[in-house]
């Protein structure tokens, strides 16, 4: 058995090494080293990353053009990608829960494992009482962000696009996380979610976080300006979260996308793989951060302030 395995492993190793050498020689780095400045032609053309998403030409506009504020409703490559993710998620859950059994197997088992892990995470932070209320939003944020990041690693994403004069003008599909509007939409949902539960569970007491009247009532007038300032800071921090949520996710996803494009341009084969692995991890971590922070903020929001102080 070892005798059969060894030549196969050796062959794979030689093949990979050849690809590394070929990639190094024919990538942007290799060609600039061997042919001098501006003389050689790298295997892939230099990437021209666009920050705004591109239109796909439906229902209006030209495919591959960046979206502008003048555009009305257009389907962009990031929106299309988010729909793909939605279809995958809904399809997976539909298939997995169609014929549920008390002793799970296959897809049902896999989905139950994911949801149970997420639920335990939510329960660990929010407690038994509130975990059921918060779980759907937190789980959806997690799954949506993670899968949106991961689908971008599929080879079909950079492969399909709009060709203009022999150049790739824009891709048909692009991870939705690289579109500012998607993280912004999630940040707004997270904001509304936190404020909604804060108000619902604490009623008007929730607002005492922003309008602190304790010292005014007790007659500690010297503390009142500080309270006022702290209240404004608290209110501001609620809105700052939207910005931080948005740009954290948008920045990470866009940077990851550009990093992969650039590394592939520099060294087309094999050496790109560690970066793909890194992006898998980044997708998971960003999803956890987005979902985890939303969970922490909502738990803080529904905790009575007197309890918080103790």
């Amino acid at each position: 058995m070892a005798a059969i395995k060894r030549p196969a492993v050796l062959l794979i190793f030689v093949l990979l090494l050849s690809l590394v050498v070929y990639g190094l020689m024919n990538g942007a780095i290799g060609t600039s080293l061997t042919s001098g400045e501006g003389e050689g032609t790298p295997l892939l053309e230099a990437p021209h990353p666009h920050i705004p998403p591109q239109k796909i030409g439906f229902p209006s506009g030209k495919g591959g053009e960046s979206v502008t504020s003048a555009d009305g409703f257009v389907i962009t490559n990031t929106i299309l990608s988010s729909w793909v993710v939605m279809i995958i998620l809904i399809g997976l859950f539909y298939m997995g829960t169609r014929n549920m059994k008390i002793v799970p197997s296959g897809l049902q088992n896999f989905l139950e494992f994911i949801l149970e892990s997420l639920y335990n995470f939510v329960q660990g932070v929010a407690g038994e009482e509130n975990s059921r209320k918060f779980f759907p939003i937190i789980a959806t944020i997690f799954l949506f962000v993670m899968l949106n990041a991961w689908v971008g690693l599929l080879p079909i994403y950079p492969a399909l696009g709009f060709i203009d004069h022999g150049h790739m003008k824009g891709h048909l599909l692009r991870p939705a996380g690289t579109d500012l509007n998607m993280p912004l939409a999630l940040a707004l949902i997270s904001f509304v979610f936190v404020e909604f539960w804060g108000l619902k569970l604490l009623k008007l007491n929730y607002l005492t976080k922003f309008v602190r009247l304790d010292n005014l009532r007790k007659g500690n007038f010297a503390q009142v300006p500080i309270d006022l300032f702290v209240g404004v800071l608290e209110l501001l921090s609620e809105f700052v979260r939207i910005v931080s949520f948005t740009f954290r996710l948008f920045g990470n996803m866009t940077a990851g996308e550009i990093l992969l494009l650039v590394i592939t341009y520099l060294v087309p084969f094999v050496l790109v793989l560690p970066f793909y692995g890194l992006e898998l991890l980044v997708g998971l971590v960003q999803a956890l951060i987005f979902a985890g922070l939303t969970l922490v903020f909502v738990v803080v929001a529904v905790t009575p302030h007197s309890e918080e102080e103790h």
């Binding site: 705004p52 979206v67 504020s69 009305g72 988010s82 939605m86 949801l115 959806t140 912004l184 707004l188």
Partner: peptide
């Protein structure tokens, strides 16, 4: 605008998320 901020797209994402949340709640959670 340079970053790609586009109100209709934002609305689409908000609707997308709401639909996804509702459907996942029904068929998944």
């Amino acid at each position: 605008e340079d970053l790609g901020f586009h109100v209709p797209s934002l609305v689409v994402y908000l609707i997308n998320f709401t639909i996804l949340l509702s459907l996942l709640y029904v068929v998944g959670y």
